[in-house]
Amino acid sequence: SPTTLPPFFMRGSIIQLADGELKRVEDLKTEDFIQSAEISSELKIDSSTVERIDTGQTPNAVIIQFGVGEHKAQVCVEVLLEYPFFVFGQGWSSCCPDRTTQLLELSCAKLCVGDVCVSLTLRSLR
């Protein structure tokens, strides 16, 4: 059950792309994820569409239902309201952008049903 956010979403965190380039988390672009996954032999980028957002089982949590990949396989995750997802062509987005900005100083859009998020699967699962 989610209680804290991982440290790498904090504004200013240094992220290493697959080609070795270093960027701050707030400077990442959609292409950085796509190009990193292209280099990776194990990981593949999927498009995961937000299909439902429900209240979670603990305070400050939400359950997000995604349709993953071309077959729209249904996957649910429970995360904190302020947990950021990267939306294609838009950037960091969360269910409560105000909390994300307050806690992480990471500027965020509102995550909505219909948004298409960057997600990963293993290439070998295909």
């Binding site: 992220i15 290493q16 990442l28 995750v77």
Partner: peptide, 19 residues
Amino acid sequence: VPVFPWHSLVPFLAPTQSD
């Protein structure tokens, strides 16, 4: 300064094999 790999930022959403 810690450096984090890009893939740690992305949720791993793998469909289950059943149904």
